[in-house]
Amino acid sequence: MLEASSLAYRYGKQHPWLFNELDLRITPGEIVGVSGPSGRGKSTLAKVLAGYLPPGKGSVMIDGRPLPASGHCPVQLLFQHPELAVNPRWKISKILREAEEPTPVILQTLGIESAWLDRYPHELSGGELQRVCLARALGSSTRYLLCDEITSMLDALTQVHIWRVVLNLARSRRLGVLVISHDKTLIARLCSRNITCLEGAAALS
């Protein structure tokens, strides 16, 4: 279980707390949504949960232990702009192998074609590149996936394709998924439970 208890974060001492006393639990196989207007700390929450930012107060635990300081992090974060999340000078084959060699099954379910492997990131479309990022994040020890607006730049057809893959994987590998989106209908479709980020705090519903 991924567990955040009385979590708080602020960018510097003179800034207000983006969220405070936030408690969040994601169990394996569960899909949780986070919505709310921009600037309320949704993306910051994801970065804290994935270990990119140290929490200001509180803690993030995985099965009662803190996140590992080195090695493959079991909590993986996916970003809104995949083109900014990859090295533009690396070919797709190298990007895919950044963490570990992806299994053929993952490449097949994500529909990653062998023709892409020799290309550079700018030669793929946004939807294709997002799938490459998804394959990279789905290493064998990944157990939680945090999706920060991963389909808001994509058209409806590509969006549905990506989410179908994530939902199937969440079911078959018992991944816990956090879905951050401003699209309430999308969250209602995907998630069993929804959290709304409000000013200075998180309201559970």
């Binding site: 409806a156 969006q159 394709h161 989410w163």
Partner: peptide, 10 residues
């Protein structure tokens, strides 16, 4: 059909 408000199928 792919819209979340409609069927959400590809």
């Amino acid at each position: 059909n792919a819209l979340p408000a409609n069927n959400f199928v590809g």
